[in-house]
């Protein structure tokens, strides 16, 4: 399969190309430069592989949660490519991407992914590896105060994501001995989404260009007088 993956959900900007088992990728931490970087990255990867955009067979992207504008940059780019090339899209959770990368890197099989959501909140999800080495969300992904996170029932969990950098003390206090270790300075990355994207394509969890949409989690965006 010829699959392109892009992510601009957080401060990081990344792109990966999967060609029947081979992976090439680009990854930089570059806040507010995603619009300048993302298409040149994709163009470079395709040029190196001698591919035209219309030869892609599928596309995946980090659909959120994350920065609203960041999510729409990746989403808009993906909608354009998917519509123009007439290929399906696999939307991938940013929290799942963090969990999958933690499994690949540290062998962690239970992961608590947290992204700093600003406004004293985190985007939060509990992930466990399945028998096909794919991270699955144990409960619903939510946005909440660090003190209101949904707790796992038992076991040793690995924390990952910027939520752990900002709110380590709150999260450790809530979770106690269930925290095995954590990595706060970690961002979602396109290359880490490839196993998730391949699984999504295999399981038919794909959508057309117009249905590829951001998952914001935070939906109350207007301050109204009560």
């Amino acid at each position: 399969m010829k699959l392109l993956v892009i992510d601009t959900a957080t401060e990081a900007c990344s792109c990966a190309l999967y060609l029947d088992g081979e992976i090439q990728d680009r990854y930089v931490i570059a806040p507010r430069q995603h619009t300048s970087l993302i298409l040149p990255m994709a163009d470079e990867l395709l040029a190196e592989a001698g591919l035209k955009p219309t030869q892609l067979e599928g596309i995946a992207f980090g659909c959120g949660p994350g920065s609203f504008t960041g999510l729409r940059i990746a989403c808009g780019v993906v909608q354009g490519i998917a519509f123009a090339a007439d290929i399906p899209v696999a939307p991938i959770s940013s929290l799942a991407a963090l969990a999958q990368a933690t499994y690949t890197k540290y062998g962690a099989v239970k992961v608590l992914a947290a992204i700093d959501a600003r406004m004293h909140e985190v985007y939060w999800g509990r992930y466990k590896i399945d028998d096909k080495d794919i991270m699955r969300c144990e409960s619903k992904e939510i946005v909440c105060a660090p003190n209101d996170i949904s707790l796992p029932s038992e076991g040793q969990w690995y924390g990952v994501g910027t939520g752990w950098a900002t709110y380590a003390e709150n999260l450790k206090a809530k979770l106690g001995k269930m925290v095995q270790d954590y990595q706060g300075k970690t961002y979602p990355q396109a290359s880490a989404m490839i196993p998730l994207a391949l699984a999504a394509f295999q399981e038919g969890k794909i959508v057309s260009a117009e249905d590829a949409l951001p998952v914001y989690l935070r939906n109350k965006v207007v301050q109204t007088r009560s």
């Binding site: 298409l39 994709a42 163009d43 940059i73 780019v77 993906v78 909608q79 354009g80 490519i81």
Partner: peptide, 8 residues
């Protein structure tokens, strides 16, 4: 984003 990627 949509316009630029369609063109690409």
């Amino acid at each position: 984003a949509v316009g630029r990627s369609l063109a690409w």
